[in-house]
Design a protein around this nucleic acid. Sequence first.
DNA 1: ATGAAAGCGCTAACAC
DNA 2: GTGTTAGCGCTTTCAT
Lengths: 331, 331
Amino acid sequence: MKPAATLKKLSESLGLSISTVSRALKNHPDISEATKKRVWDLANELEYEPNTYAISLRTNTSKVFGLIIPQISSDFYDAVIASLEEEARLHEYSLLILQSSDNPLIEIANIKLCKQNRVAGIFASLSSDTKDITPFLKLVNNGIPVIFIDKVPTDDTCNKICIADEQAAKIAAEALVRNKKKNVLSLFGNQNFSITQKRLESYTYYFTQHAPNAHLQIIEAKSSIEATQKTLEAFKQPNKPDAIFCMSDEILIGTMKALQQLKLQWPTDVSVIAMSNGYSPLLYYPEISYVETSGYKLGKLAYSRMMVCLLGSSFIQHLNVDSLYVPLGSL
Amino acid sequence: MKPAATLKKLSESLGLSISTVSRALKNHPDISEATKKRVWDLANELEYEPNTYAISLRTNTSKVFGLIIPQISSDFYDAVIASLEEEARLHEYSLLILQSSDNPLIEIANIKLCKQNRVAGIFASLSSDTKDITPFLKLVNNGIPVIFIDKVPTDDTCNKICIADEQAAKIAAEALVRNKKKNVLSLFGNQNFSITQKRLESYTYYFTQHAPNAHLQIIEAKSSIEATQKTLEAFKQPNKPDAIFCMSDEILIGTMKALQQLKLQWPTDVSVIAMSNGYSPLLYYPEISYVETSGYKLGKLAYSRMMVCLLGSSFIQHLNVDSLYVPLGSL
DNA sequence: ATGAAAGCGCTAACAC
DNA sequence: GTGTTAGCGCTTTCAT
């Protein structure tokens, strides 16, 4: 258990000063090639690695981003994390990942952790119950950029990156109308969430404009299990749906389970279309047509926005990740 | 953009020395209640947060664990990450997550990053192509515990936490034999992986011992798509399987897609059993019976092992996460 | 081309 | 009960 090498040790072994060693390791032009070589050779031999704590302390900078999300285990946030990690590594940053478990108290604690770690910036997706975002706004005032992603505050004075909820829902509605669906079982998530509201509004609006005679059976399903139940119930009614719209992967999964149970085939017995991150639609045969709501793309966009903020731009932006329709076999 | 509060600023504002402020903030018994209150009040007002870089530099300790995994976006690793993050937060540690994308070069770079960040310890799941684990062993020699998880080296001189592959595969085999299955399509992943070998060996061994007359059709499927293809092919043969065994979630998903395509019902047309982290079996109706291989439990076990190592235990352990059979509707 | 010295924010041994 | 001091590893200005 030998202690890690330091500039001091290198300099002592080489009979050089600390600053010379430091400069040699940075390939500073002032240092002679001969000295550089000596320094590098010993550094490699002793496997010198600069101490990031000392660097950060000295330079008052940090190469770490905080990422605060409700929960890690989710198809969507996985994609976001993977995407952010990729970008961060490319730019020599690291990611401090903190899950709030949808608990505002843990969220506050996580913000504190970010402060203590003097992170360069924060990506945050709010827990469902968070009402007060002043802790975040304070960070922004202190010069730490905060990029809200996906579950963003209503507040307009902050940087937000979202799925283009309205656009995506509209694309789905278009596809349904184009396919002349007349009786659509339309399953939406918790209506307290802003993303649900946005999707619902845009979806219904499109129908009233372009297919006022279509019957939309709008149902709230707060979980996968509820989606299964509600779908089963819907097919007990005399007036069977000719299509199903699922607002999210979670709902799609519940619905598909019901269809399997009812031994209904898609698209022959009923059409299906979902909004999805792109994984679960491929689990079924035929595969489910979906409007892509990509966590991966969201991560990329959020990262680029972070970079702009780090460069000093203080103006606020609200960006959306474009959606696109992926027609597969179910509609 | 005001700079963060420091002990120095607090001490200057209060007319106290830095050390007094530091002690007051730690509720040191030497400090009078009156002084403590003054200090705390100002600290709260200025939202003082200790600078972890300074602390780590000074104390030569770190409250960060490195987590190096092949990829984040996976049902299984999600669970591992979520579980580790939970434990880490409870113990006031954070997680530096680095994905190697199954690339040994990135893996090396990630180890370097961990060194630079002077992490307290590392959890590592190896990329498939990693042959040389000396970079990891060097860290161990330098006193940084490394806990290998899931994809572990064959080397016996290191701490490893695994799914009980042999046990889990045996449990599945038992269930199949108990249900008198005679012709089992048995799908295994890439046979270069140690986990595949272990599962395969234990599985076939059980059959030779307890049901030597059963026909096992052992097939290698290196991806979900291959699992679909191989399943489709298997059902083209005259001698149809009466059961399917899937070694992993990835394979299960591929297989189920084939069954849907073939319009086969489970368990009526064919039984299905899988080894799984527990999510995908619930996507189908009836739900798929599975042997649990829990990433969540693995994370918990790995964390507790890390804690033991941090306390100075240098002895090596190879621990397994117990599996259990979860009978659902497909067998 | 190289070195000396100050200082980032904090802790802790040692004073008084 | 409070203050002084040295030092963790590094960068950087200012010498020489």
